[in-house]
């Protein structure tokens, strides 16, 4: 896994069909992700995620609209999109992050795994950084973890 990627997963007591609906339908997306979502769950579709002041995004002064493009949509199995590319630009690995959901049917439900990669590509612009601070961070836990190990093993008086 690349240094700038995040991987998380959860077991959901629901069928892959139900989970699929929750992660791909705009009216559902707006219940767990952005405050508003315009999106079609088919490959190549362009859409937008909007965070509103006072909404899920926390204390913002104005709407934050983030472009999103569906890369791959294989019903009930895989759903991926690129996001955070400059508006109007064609998303690629240099200007956007890739989010990949995979749904794995298990005896007790569906294992939903998410991998986000290419985070470094979108942290160059200020808006991207702001949101990445809000929304991401797993990759950084590792980097900072290394630094903190040093801190723990370094006498504090060196910094005072």
């Amino acid at each position: 896994m690349a240094a700038d990627s995040v991987e998380r997963e959860i077991l959901i007591e629901a069928s892959p069909e139900v989970v699929w609906g929750v992660i791909t339908e705009p009216e559902q997306i707006s219940r767990w992700f952005s405050d508003e979502a315009e999106l079609e769950g088919r490959a190549g579709a362009d859409g937008a995620l909007t965070w509103r002041p006072g909404g899920r995004g926390g204390d913002r002064d104005s709407d934050m609209v983030v472009p999103i493009r569906v890369v791959d949509a294989e019903p009930f199995r895989r759903f991926s999109f690129r996001w955070n590319h400059p508006r109007g630009a064609r998303p690629d690995e240099n200007n956007s992050a890739l989010v990949e959901f995979s749904l794995i049917e298990e005896a007790d439900g569906t294992r939903l795994r998410v991998v986000e990669s290419g985070i470094d590509a979108v942290t160059d612009d200020e808006q991207g950084r702001a949101r990445y601070l809000d929304e991401h961070g797993q990759g950084w836990e590792r980097h900072l973890g290394e630094l903190l190990d040093y801190v723990a093993s370094t006498p504090r008086q060196a910094t005072r």
């Binding site: 959860i10 629901a14 139900v18 609906g21 929750v22 219940r31 939903l112 900072l144 630094l147």
Partner: peptide, 29 residues
């Protein structure tokens, strides 16, 4: 540096929160 780590640890929970919301929604559906 501790502050920075704290900030990162805080944001590190975001994906978990989202997945937890997805779980809740899907299970209620």
């Amino acid at each position: 540096l501790d502050d920075a780590a704290e900030a990162m640890a805080r944001v590190a929970q975001q994906w978990d929160r989202r997945l937890a919301r997805i779980k809740r929604l899907a299970e209620s559906v």
